[in-house]
C-alpha cells in the first residue's frame, strides 16, 4: 500500500527549508566574509579558463563590431581630432598652472599633508570574469589574499574609481562596481573656481538601465549647491572606504528632484566599465 504523506509535515518541512535558505543567504550576503575553501579551490582552478573565455569573447565581439563600424569610426575620428585640438590648448594652460602649483608647493613644503594616494600600494590585476551573479554588477580579478588583497580595498583603473573588493579567495577577488546601487561613495564636485560641493554618489538602478553593462551614476546635493556640467567628481574620503581625491567622473546633467528639496546630477564615469581589462587594487601601507 502506498504510504500517505502528511500535508502538515510537508508544509513544516518546506517552511524550514525556505527559512534555512533565507537565513543562509543573509549570513553570506555580498561583502560578508566566510570560510569557503571549496570556492577558493574552484576559483583557483577555473581562473585561467575564465580568462581565456573572456579574451575569446572580447576578440569575437571586437571583430564583429569593427566590420559594421566604418562610418561611425570616421565620425569618431573627426570628433577625436577636434578633441585633440581642444586638449592641446588646455594642456598648455594646465602646464602653466602646474608650474605655478610647483612653486606654491615648494613654498608650502612641510605645511600640507601627504596626498591620500601616497598611503597606498597599488596591486595590478586583470579582469577574468564579469557579473557572475546577475544580481550585482561585479568583476572578478586574478589577484587575491595571497597577493595582499583584502575585502573593502578600493579598486581603481587608469582613469578613475572602479569600485571596492567585496570578497576574496586565495587567488581571486570579487569587485563591486561603483555603478551598482550597493556601491555608494561619498564624493565632492571640484568647481572651476576651486570650491568644493559635497554629495553622495550611487548607481542609478531605480531609474537607469541597471541591467546594462555600461555604468550610470547619480549624485545628490542640497538645493542651494551650484553644480555645472563638465565639472569633475572625486571621492571625498569621508566614507572611510575610498581615499580622498580619486576621480569618479564628470557631471553630465543636473536637475531638481521631484520633491524640490534636493538636486541630483548624472555623472558620466571616467572609467569605461564595458572595456575594463586591467585594474589596480589599493592596499594601505602597513
Amino acid at each position: 500500500m502506498k504510504k500517505k504523506s502528511n500535508p502538515i509535515g510537508v508544509s513544516i518541512l518546506v517552511f524550514a527549508i525556505v527559512l534555512g535558505t533565507f537565513a543562509m543567504m543573509r549570513l553570506t550576503n555580498m561583502g560578508t566574509p566566510f570560510f569557503n575553501p571549496v570556492g577558493d579551490v574552484m576559483n583557483k582552478v577555473l581562473q585561467p579558463v575564465e580568462g581565456f573565455f573572456l579574451r575569446v569573447g572580447g576578440d569575437v565581439k571586437e571583430g564583429v563590431s569593427s566590420m559594421f563600424a566604418f562610418r561611425s569610426l570616421q565620425r569618431e575620428n573627426e570628433a577625436l581630432r577636434q578633441d585633440l585640438d581642444r586638449i592641446t590648448g588646455e594642456n598648455a594652460l594646465l602646464r602653466e598652472e602646474l608650474l605655478a602649483g610647483e612653486r606654491y608647493r615648494a613654498l608650502a613644503e612641510g605645511e600640507f599633508q601627504t596626498p591620500a594616494w601616497d598611503n597606498y600600494e597599488k596591486i595590478g590585476a586583470s579582469v577574468v570574469s564579469r557579473n557572475q551573479n546577475a544580481w550585482y554588477q561585479t568583476v572578478k580579478i586574478n589577484k587575491g589574499r595571497r597577493q595582499g588583497v583584502a575585502p573593502h580595498a578600493p579598486v581603481v583603473a587608469g582613469a578613475g574609481l572602479v569600485g571596492k573588493v567585496v570578497s576574496v579567495t586565495e587567488t581571486t577577488a570579487e569587485v563591486l562596481l561603483i555603478t551598482d546601487a550597493q556601491g555608494q561613495a561619498s564624493a565632492f564636485v571640484r568647481k572651476a573656481q576651486g570650491e568644493i560641493v559635497y554629495g553622495v554618489l550611487y548607481g542609478t538602478y531605480k531609474r537607469g538601465p541597471r541591467l546594462q553593462n555600461d555604468g550610470a551614476l547619480q549624485m545628490d546635493f542640497s538645493q542651494e549647491d551650484e553644480v555645472e556640467l563638465g565639472e569633475l567628481v572625486m571621492t571625498s574620503g569621508l566614507g572611510g572606504v575610498f581615499p580622498k581625491g580619486i576621480v569618479i567622473g564628470t557631471v553630465s546633467d543636473v536637475m531638481m528632484q521631484g520633491s524640490g528639496l534636493m538636486k541630483e546630477a548624472r555623472v558620466t564615469p571616467a572609467v569605461n566599465f564595458d572595456g575594463l581589462e586591467e585594474v589596480y587594487v589599493m592596499k594601505e601601507h602597513s
Binding site: 577555473l46 575564465e50 569573447g57 570574469s129
Partner: peptide, 21 residues
C-alpha cells in the same frame, strides 16, 4: 557543468542584449 558555470560571466557577457544573459 564547468561550461555552464563560467560561460555566463565570460562568453555571454558579450552576448547580453539589454543586459540579459
Amino acid at each position: 557543468f564547468i561550461f555552464c558555470l563560467i560561460a555566463p560571466g565570460t562568453v555571454f557577457y558579450y552576448l547580453s542584449p539589454w543586459g540579459i544573459r
